[in-house]
Design a protein around this nucleic acid. Structure first.
Lengths: 325, 325
DNA sequence: TTTGGCTGATTAATCGTTAAATCAGGGGGC
DNA sequence: GCCCCCTGATTTAACGATTAATCAGCCAAA
């Protein structure tokens, strides 16, 4: 490994001058800067992150903690986050909090122990991370709007509910996975707010809810709005066993546009998160905090996008009533 | 942050002694070790990873490069790898190679630039990572058996093919996604090797293959063996459109036991990777290499496990012929 | 000619930890 | 009583980069 000293002695100058030339900090003549930079390039110089970290106290590494890495949504977040971080010269160290709030705290502490400059957290359902000695940005939970960035889950719920209303459904089922999850509650709240006065909605939760939903459809409901593609897929299986056709007899929607949504049958109407924007904004906010600035782009929520596929259609036995929004 | 010096002056001893006591390296009396350790604990001492890295040249961080973080299988690998690394006091820095072999090399180089002690690579389809200045362990591609650990894809293929043969199928379709992928070729080779002499198998690839498979089923094939749950799901959609019932008219199998496999309808018979073992072994091998040892556990392949669910059954219009393995 | 200011560079200290070399002192062998 | 060895510590230097403080010239103004 070639160090700053070698470049210095090679050119016949002091190490400090090389450092100044490379970082553009001190006072070095134009020509000298050029000479040093080209020579550094030639020798393939890479600054030692360890030495820099020791001296400056900054590692250039962010910690990423996710509730459960096996969540199918994780890859997209991790990927975009890692790419966004890359553009700012930051690396991402991962950890998962394996289901418990306690493990979440442990993971955060370990990452801090490793000297990360900041933390990105997708919190456990219903938890808020402890205060940490480094900046923290919370993703997908609108706790503290100053250092949180989240998809507009309520808005997404409204989008899909409005779609269902627009194509003529009047009696619907809303199916959530776990009422502890703030995200899911937000989505449902958004759905409910977007329903019209003449509509009727039953809200069910969890595995029991799947069975209840079948009954409700048999009693006349024509659409099922779920808070997750996974729940939608499970619902689809139950409907199949109950010999209820999708979308002919009942429309079905998911949430998150997971990998299998476009290739299941029928292709699932769902709501997609703008993961790129969320990631970019999270990185923006945390880098601002690290530099001690106030981020100009506060954690407003990021709009979601309705993806209409084949699992939703106009209700059977009912005239098409198309309302303008 | 409390440093080694503070503990030293606090107790009235030199910094070197504290370091020796904490790492157990030099010569320190039992009592002194105890005093130092308890005092360090009290003060909440955390060694500076930066300083240690600078001095020893080791960061305690591994780089993980995956072909495409959006692959639904990634989370499980990342999670188990991160947990296995954790037990050895190592952190994991992620990067993805976004589809191209060139990006893969770039990602590797960036991680090396960050000073990782070793690299874990799940290579792009059909590529072999360049030589690197740190130890590299390749996952799921049996290139160099000394520093590679892989699921026994051929064995997995054999498992599922034998299952299909055992329950009486005689004319089958094998459906792969991309012939460039060594993993998929291995799986198919395993399937073919396990077929009986009196069986007949057609191999198709990609999106076109899905349509061909439908035709082949209509011509008399009673089972479709795919190399991925994603392909199986796509196949299922096509079969549905063609009004072919699974498993009544055709049995269907996947690969990898992805999140949706148990909840699709019918629940998918598939082959699961022992991700825990793969991850643990990968970490074992790489830590050995980092310590300069020869790993005792060479990269043998890790057996796969057949998961029988409802998508496979005895062929219709045919006597049940149950053979012993 | 002296003083002051500016430029472009150098010195030296520092971050926290580790490792090799050194040292003080006690006990045992002869 | 002398020498040697062993134990338990200490000194010292180093890892590579950054940064405050300093310094040598040089030019211009007084």
């Amino acid at each position: 490994m070639v160090s700053i000293k070698e470049i210095a002695s090679d050119i016949g100058v002091s190490a400090a001058t090389v450092s100044n030339a490379l970082t553009g900090k001190g006072r070095v003549s134009k020509e000298m800067v050029a000479r040093i930079k080209t020579r550094a390039e030639e020798l393939g110089y890479r600054p030692s992150t360890a030495a820099r970290a020791l001296k400056t106290g900054q590692t250039g590494i962010l910690g990423l903690v996710m509730p459960d890495l096996t969540n199918p949504l994780f890859p997209r977040i991790a990927q975009t986050l890692s790419q966004a971080a890359e553009t700012k010269g930051l690396g991402i160290l991962i950890a998962d909090s394996r289901g418990s709030a306690h493990e979440q705290s442990e993971a955060l502490r370990r990452l801090v122990g490793r000297g990360v400059d900041g933390l990105l957290v997708v919190p456990q359902r219903g938890t808020t991370p402890d205060p940490m000695p480094v900046p923290v940005v919370v993703i997908n939970t609108a706790s503290d709007p100053l250092n949180a960035v989240s998809a507009d889950h309520a808005g997404g719920g409204a989008l899909v509910a409005r779609h269902i209303a627009d194509i003529g459904h009047r009696r619907v089922v809303i199916l959530g996975g776990d009422p502890v999850s703030e995200v899911q509650r937000d989505r449902i709240a958004g759905m409910q707010a977007a329903l019209r006065p003449d509509m009727q909605a039953s809200v069910f939760w969890g595995d029991a809810g799947v069975a209840q939903a079948v009954a409700e459809v048999q009693a006349g409901a024509t659409a099922i709005l779920t808070t997750s593609d996974l729940i939608a897929l499970r619902m689809r299986s139950q409907l199949m066993q109950a010999q209820i056709a999708v979308p002919e007899q009942v429309s079905l929607t998911g949430f998150d546009d997971m990998s299998f949504a476009p290739i299941m049958h029928p292709a699932l109407t769902t709501v997609a998160q703008d993961v790129d924007t969320i990631a970019a904004r999270a990185i923006d906010i945390i880098t601002s905090h690290i530099r001690g600035e106030t981020p100009d782009t506060h954690g407003q929520t990021v709009p979601m996008r309705l993806v209409v596929r084949n699992s939703t259609t106009i209700p059977k036995d009912q005239p098409t009533r198309r309302h303008l929004p």
